[in-house]
Amino acid sequence: MTQILYIEDEQEIALWLQRALKQQGFTVYHYKSYEAYEESGHILTPDIVILDIMLPGLDGFSIARKLKREYHDLPILMLSARSMLDDKLEGLSIADDYVTKPFQVEEILARVQVLLRRFHKIDEVLTIQHIAIHTKDLTVFDQEHQREILLTQTQYGLLRYFIEHLNQILTKEQLYEGVWQEPYIDGDKTLMVHIRYLREKIERDASNPTIIETVRGIGYRVKA
């Protein structure tokens, strides 16, 4: 069961989001402030934390810093009605995601899902067309032919990056710099070559790809 620690002082908002999260099958522990959480005596090891920034007592930034020191692989999603850039930048420098109010519940749910996947907090099987991907250990299974598809290091890297940014269009530069960890040089064909190799392994028809979609002029996308 995925445990969510949620700190929010606005009762109405808290109830609403809590309900939506519970409907998704998460266990939510909600507190009005960090002090309230500490006083509750509950010692949680949450899978993910959702934090408001403007809170009575310790503010969201400080809580995030404190939690990040204690659990280094704990994903933190910040929620705030403060949308100024400074806040956003500071938030993102500490936390893993930052959503401004007034948010849509669906957006929060999607982002929680992304964070859980990125931090390997859930053992989930993603089914994209005919292939099934275990997001935790990144094994790829071809359901049509009932066999595991083995990938090279680079191909795993690419696939992992796509899975971590599911449904997001990734530009060539973002992909290259994310996977190879070095600056992209204009005209470099390495990425294209490796995407072709990956497609040859996972697509039904590599020349007409449907899993790794090409968005013309912009980049690539893997949709779940």
Binding site: E10, R82, M84, F103
Partner: peptide, 16 residues
């Protein structure tokens, strides 16, 4: 920033 916060919080509550 605080003003923005104060205006957006009620909007979020409306959505809730």
């Amino acid at each position: 920033a605080n003003l923005s916060h104060d205006l957006k919080t009620p909007l979020t509550k409306m959505r809730a």
